[in-house]
């Protein structure tokens, strides 16, 4: 009962959270924390982390461990390159494709080997890092912000994928597949919005 009240209290506090008055995401605690916040409030980034973590978790602990390393490292490399690179016009299409693909694979529960999961994580990390670099630099949160962002990516991937890998009940694994289908479906719709905004 106490847990329910605690949960209800936390939910209430979350509902009445103060607005984020920021250029990119300003926490007031410095660039590192701004980078963390950026990942948490950017749906494209958050969705790809969730999708990659679900995919890695579905494929077991080995895939989960490697993905938790590969995704943030690739994100860092992409981000560092991105700080010196203009955002490509196709970048949103590419970043959306990553979570659509990962979400679809989660929904289909494909029996991918560990190398394939790591490849997905690396591609996703590189593309989202490349998108983060050019958006963070003008906002003045640069490399420290990038390190904050990849810390958030790493922790989220590790926490989520390890939880998913530990699931044993059938309906838990079905819930993961449903979540994958929701992510993929949102991305499919996003393709349409990108097309509309481009025309």
């Amino acid at each position: 009962m106490r847990k329910i009240w605690t949960g209800a209290g936390a939910t209430g506090l979350a509902i009445f959270a103060a607005p984020a008055r920021a250029h990119l995401a300003s926490t007031g605690f410095g660039d590192f924390y701004d980078g963390i916040a950026h990942v948490l409030i950017t749906p494209e980034d958050l969705l790809v982390v969730i999708a990659a973590a679900l995919l890695a978790g579905q494929r077991g602990t080995a895939a989960a461990r490697l993905a938790a390393l590969a995704l943030p490292l690739a994100w860092l490399v992409g981000g560092l390159v991105g700080t010196r690179w203009q955002l490509m016009s196709t970048q949103p299409l590419l970043t959306t494709s990553t979570f659509v693909l990962a979400g679809l694979m989660v929904a289909l529960d494909r029996r991918l080997n560990v190398a394939a999961v790591v490849t997905v994580a690396v591609i996703a990390g590189l593309l989202h890092g490349l998108a983060n670099g050019p958006t963070m630099t003008p906002a003045g949160i640069g490399v420290q912000g990038l390190i904050g962002a990849i810390s958030a990516v790493g922790v989220l991937t590790l926490l989520l994928s390890s939880q998913i890998a530990a699931l044993t009940r059938d309906w838990h694994r079905i819930a993961v597949r449903v979540a994958g289908s929701w992510i993929a479906a949102s991305g499919l719709l996003m393709f349409g919005w990108l097309y509309q905004s481009a025309t």
Binding site: I4, G7, A10, T11, A14, I15, A17, A18, P19, A20, R21, A22, H23, L24, A25, I41, T42, P43, L46, T135, A139, A175
Partner: peptide, 22 residues
């Protein structure tokens, strides 16, 4: 699990509309 999911969804929806980029 439903309670946790609901709390997570609500936590993801604070008033973010003032961020410039997003």
């Amino acid at each position: 699990l439903f309670l946790r999911t609901a709390a997570l969804l609500v936590a993801l929806t604070p008033a973010l509309a003032l961020a410039h980029q997003e």
